[in-house]
Write a protein that binds this DNA or RNA. Structure first.
Length: 462
RNA sequence: GGCGACGUAGCCAAGUGGUAAGGCAGAGGUCUGCAAAACCUUUAUCAUGGGUUCGAAUCCCAUCGUCGCCUCCA
């Protein structure tokens, strides 16, 4: 059985065949760091975290590189407004983004290159493109000659002629072709700039990624990822640059995540319909955002609203219901949970192998939750139950979900809660309901939920 | 206007030729002192109209609608 990946380049699901057996090189476009990150940015990071975790679970050695674009018009603008150095702006939001990645339980990438640290390689690449005839200098700028690259448009499915027809923005008359894009931009006063053969300037956005990808992963990579808003022009241009430079196919698989939707449109800074990662995490635990993504297809748009968030919270709770300890009783039972356990692993793999179909995989996990709960209700042996629960934790862990709450892992409150339960038992035996309800209510205020069953009382964290 | 994706129950959503997973919400029930949780039962013919096929949510065509890209963008 092999993993299938939907490839934007071919518009088909294809079996994963890596350049080197057992190894995957993956480059994912990171954010431009000029403002607070919103949950849409987080979505992209989460999607590719899930991809990476799953590939690793399937025994691939994954080299995962994500860049930070730390020099660009908006960063410069922001710096001007605040009256600080653009580098400071970039650093501030990079630090913040790093923190979000940790908070969201996203595995650390192999490397996080930054454009400003790769200027030399970028200048070399641009010079190389000029030399090869794929680019031309123009008054201190350098432009990519789109017509020179025969495959231009192959990723986005566009034809150069079609795009000319519908061209809406004002065209820079100096350029040879309206679609020619900047590889190098000449410096304006008070802008960060670096020396180059064409004068002081800074790199264009697209060439950064081509160069960083090349310098950290090589001329050819297995997977290139990013949001589907980057397909054109960013990724199209990356292909044009990289393939012109190296004369080989750039990335084998192009993966794109769908856009986070808020109020019926793509969440974005420019529209202003956004929820920042910090805003989100003030109100919800990190697993909720991950669950929203897991419960749908990574390629589809994801609606962000109170209702869909609520669904994800409930879903998380439901998974956790299967982790409750065995009922306190004598005379344990066995069942066919072992068989179900083997089954769920197979079904989980089958779904995830199919282009990371996490929603399908979640369906199987929920089925498994029901089986575990059923076994528990029937009075399953604690060890027996634990074995199944471990599998559930393992599989959800592959998706990056942490079912066990930190308090539950750390606290030594358990012995005191047990003590309260014991006292409450006495009260209940004497039908002192009011007093026993006070204990239950007060514990719930402290996030401890008591559950009375015919076999006795158990507790769990809320 | 061009390119692409999508349209499955009240909501979210899986399923790409063989007769509709799962979650939330709703209804009824079991358990409970009450509750919560869990468990059991129950809720759709797959945007619309044609076509291909023994058979289609699944393939083809058309229509309507939503979203993305064509300008910075995860």
């Amino acid at each position: 059985m092999s993993i299938k990946i939907y490839n934007t380049l071919t518009k088909k699901k294809e079996a994963l065949e890596t350049l080197q057996p057992g190894k995957v090189s993956m480059y994912v476009c990171g954010p431009t760091v000029y403002a607070e990150a919103h949950v849409g940015h987080a979505m992209s990071a989460l999607v590719f975290d899930i991809v990476r975790r799953y590939l690793e679970y399937r025994d691939y050695e994954v080299r995962h590189v994500t860049n930070y674009t730390d020099v660009d018009d908006k960063i410069i603008q922001r710096a001007a407004v605040e009256g600080v150095d653009p580098i400071q702006i970039a650093q501030r939001y990079i630090d913040e983004f790093d923190r979000h990645l940790k908070d969201l339980n996203i595995l650390t990438a192999s490397e996080y290159p930054r454009a400003t640290e790769e200027i030399n390689s970028i200048v070399e690449a641009v010079a190389d493109l000029v030399e090869k005839g794929y680019a031309y200098p123009l008054n201190g700028d350098v432009y990519y000659r789109v017509n020179k690259f025969p495959g231009y448009g192959k990723l986005s499915g566009r034809k150069i002629e079609d795009m000319e027809a519908g061209f809406r923005i004002e065209v820079d008359e100096r350029k040879e072709h309206p679609l020619d894009f900047a590889l190098w931009k000449s410096a304006k006063p008070n802008e960060p700039s670096w020396p180059s053969p064409w004068g002081n300037g800074r790199p264009g956005w697209h060439i950064e990624c081509s160069v960083m990808c090349q310098s950290h992963l090589g001329d050819q990579i297995d997977i290139h990822g990013g949001g589907n808003d980057l397909i054109f022009p960013h990724h199209e241009n990356e292909i044009a640059q990289s393939e012109a430079l190296h004369g080989k196919k750039f990335a084998t698989y192009w993966m794109h995540n769908g856009m986070m939707q808020l109020s019926g449109a793509k969440m974005s800074k420019s529209v202003g319909n956004l929820v920042t990662v910090d805003n989100f995490l003030e109100k919800y635990e990190p697993g909720v955002l991950r669950m929203m993504i897991l419960n749908s297809s990574y390629r589809s748009p994801l609606t962000f609203n109170e209702e869909t968030i609520g669904h994800a919270e409930k879903a998380l709770k439901r998974l956790r219901s299967a982790l409750r300890p065995a009922l306190p009783k004598d005379g344990w039972e066995k069942g066919d949970l072992q068989k179900k356990t083997d089954q769920v692993i197979k079904l989980f793999l089958k779904s995830m192998d199919d282009d990371f179909n996490s929603a399908g995989a979640m369906g199987h996990l929920f089925d498994f939750v029901k089986e575990i709960n059923l076994a528990r209700d029937k009075g399953a042996d604690p060890e027996y139950l634990l074995a199944a629960q471990d599998v559930l934790k393992e599989l959800t862990g592959v998706l990056g979900l942490e079912l066990e709450l930190p308090e539950a892992q750390a606290g030594d409150a358990g012995q005191y809660i047990d003590l309260l339960i014991e006292i409450r038992e006495k009260l209940r035996e004497n039908e002192l309901w009011e007093l026993s309800d006070i204990i239950r209510d007060k514990l719930e205020e402290r996030d401890v939920i008591l559950e009375d069953t015919s076999q006795g009382t158990t507790w769990r964290w809320k």
